[in-house]
């Protein structure tokens, strides 16, 4: 990890929602080709962390750097334009658009590369035959698991070098959770850097290289995934281990 410049450096950020403070001096780094998980319970500030990286919320203090350049206060589209893709919390597919159109919108920043796009679309259809079957169907009519697959495929069509993923297993049956993580494993194998926010610590720690545990808006524990998986405190709080 030390060999190259880190992709994301979050340095002591505070985030406020009106009068309520959500993050207190959170710091975090994501190295190139690394998979970093942010764990924590409800309202611990996990999603806020990822939203700050994507420019969806503005830190009131501290800095965020992406590939060495500060991105504080930049709009989401400017951050996405730097090779980032997002798989938002709750999937957020466009319900009244077809699967095909949803996929296309994932490639919105690449809209001028028409030819490559057609090829990539084929590759997505090969990887997700289900989506190919349903490409003309309205996305809102699909099941939660299928929508999550669509959201993943949509992000992949961005051809990102860095993906921010917010709770991909939320509300899914175990079978779909496994499928989601299979996809993420393959992305990891492709060398895509991943910042992952999860409540499902067991799955996340299997995938991740390193992890941070947030509590009440502060980093409580951090370390390699292996260390955290065996950390008694983490096991007790998040892995339901005896």
């Amino acid at each position: 990890m030390a060999e190259t410049q880190p992709r994301i450096v979050i340095d002591a950020i505070d985030v406020h929602y009106g009068a309520v403070q959500a993050l207190f001096g959170v710091s975090l780094t994501v190295g190139a080709r690394e998979v970093v998980a942010v764990l924590g319970g409800n309202a611990s500030g996990k999603s806020t962390t990822i939203k700050s990286v994507l420019g969806l919320v503005r830190p009131t203090k501290g800095t965020i750097t992406l590939d060495g350049a500060p991105v504080n206060g930049q709009r989401p589209d400017a951050i996405i334009a730097r090779g980032v893709a997002s798989v938002p919390e709750g999937r957020r597919v466009f319900p009244e658009m077809s699967v095909y159109e949803n996929l296309l919108l994932g490639a919105y920043p690449r809209r001028r590369e028409a030819r490559e796009l057609a090829g990539d679309l084929e590759r997505v259809y090969d990887a997700f035959p289900r989506l190919k079957e349903r490409r003309a169907q309205l996305a809102g009519t699909m099941s939660g698991g299928e929508q999550q697959m669509l959201a993943l495929a949509r992000a992949w069509l961005r051809k990102p070098t860095l993906v921010c993923i917010d709770e991909p297993s939320m509300g899914l049956s175990p079978r779909f959770v496994d499928q989601v993580y299979e996809v993420l494993q393959s992305w990891k194998a492709q060398g895509i850097t991943i910042l992952l926010v999860e409540q499902n610590a067991r799955m996340a720690l299997e995938l991740a290289d390193r992890a941070y545990v947030l509590q009440h808006g502060r980093v409580a524990v951090s370390g390699t995934a292996r260390d955290l998986a065996s950390d008694p405190q983490v096991r007790k709080a998040y892995l339901g281990a005896a």
Binding site: L56, R75, D77, I80, R92, V93, L104, Y108
Partner: peptide
């Protein structure tokens, strides 16, 4: 593309922003 982005913004502006749509 603009038309699709318009519809996407109409259906879910936050999600549209995360796909790089202004």
């Amino acid at each position: 593309w603009t038309g699709r982005a318009l519809r996407a913004t109409a259906q879910d502006p936050a999600a549209a922003a995360q796909l790089g749509i202004r």
